[in-house]
Design a protein around this nucleic acid. Sequence first.
DNA 1: GTCTATAGTCGGATAGAC
DNA 2: GTCTATCCGACTATAGAC
Lengths: 227, 227
Amino acid sequence: MMKKQRISPDETKLQLLKAGMHLFGLQGFEGTRTRELAQMAGVNQAAIPYHFGGKEGLYLAVARYVVKRGSDQMKSEVEMIQHTLRDGKLVKVEAEHMLMRFFFAFMDNIILSEDLSDRSRFILREYSTPGAGFEIIYEGMLGKIHKLLCVLVGTIEGENPESERVILKTHALFGTVVGNALTRNLLFRRLDWENFTPERIERMKQAVAEIVCHGLNLGDPNKYLET
Amino acid sequence: MMKKQRISPDETKLQLLKAGMHLFGLQGFEGTRTRELAQMAGVNQAAIPYHFGGKEGLYLAVARYVVKRGSDQMKSEVEMIQHTLRDGKLVKVEAEHMLMRFFFAFMDNIILSEDLSDRSRFILREYSTPGAGFEIIYEGMLGKIHKLLCVLVGTIEGENPESERVILKTHALFGTVVGNALTRNLLFRRLDWENFTPERIERMKQAVAEIVCHGLNLGDPNKYLET
DNA sequence: GTCTATAGTCGGATAGAC
DNA sequence: GTCTATCCGACTATAGAC
């Protein structure tokens, strides 16, 4: 007993993945030093080239890790929807509830733990620098979620879920949710917040729900489009 | 005549600002090399420390340049709204039209020229890395726009424009617009687009207008919130 | 597998001629 | 003000002992 504390190889990799998710998300790829990563992970700097083939290898591994954790988290929501779809019995009223449930689950997931906050920052950064990382996240997660949402919106509106119209509308709707995460710093400034809390998220959900359910009740949209 | 082509100091600075807006927006601060910046600007690498005190000085100057150009562009819309507000005669129906006009102008501005595309990329990046640059953009532009939108939404809903409820709702609404820019790569993948065109933007406006005007027509939002 | 030490590269700022 | 050349610090990857 009491022999030198030495973590397992798997633990070394895991700690590096966590550190990478955090630091890459905050500072970007070039803005993050391998020494920082190693220090935060509590491992040696040389462990990065050894285990991941280099800094870039670690970055891509982090992207896959983010996808894996995100998929696990949304799994129950996604499976419920897919199950109903497979039965071919998805009707409007169910689609409505599933859409809202999904949005709310997404908002909870975006925010409510440090790990999740790291994940959302990492993903946000991928939006602005599409590359191999975005590819991994799109293929593994984002694309699937988006398609699923389009199925729900298409069902609600009685239209082809892969039509341009439904995709654009779904994307705009999704913006009400992801915008809260992507532009969180703007929101924080406006409300003098320094973080999200469960109570605040409930009030954000209320606002999102109102928009999704009936926008601003302005009547025929076309009257604004005839410019 | 025909003496050695030598650009003016102002031109040197301008070219560096343009190159900075483009490259910083695409690659981030650390991801961009001063040699790249100088080459794209067609000037000498040593001109960066000379004119801007260093790479970081150039970055902040770019942030101010982005604010200036953005303010100029939105000036007519903003002034029209402010003018009406000063007269104290803003009524619901006008607020509705102004809100939509503003959203549409914003969408046009986000997208429709290379310069604008560079600007929006630069701003997007600031969202994910708040720092001195975000400060400049918030103080000079984003905050003002957000407050103005809240006034419009508050007027439409007959509520205090600076109440948390109105701010959250405005932010969610604004998400339908900015989301199209922030998550453009997701949208492009889903629709097999490689860029925006005026026609595509018109169809995006249609989708945004529908959401803003009446969401998905789902009835009482509270029925989804009682979890 | 992990560690220390270091090699090798690169990038930003500077010096100084023009 | 602009240019070339260069310095100096910082970073990643590697070598090699344990």
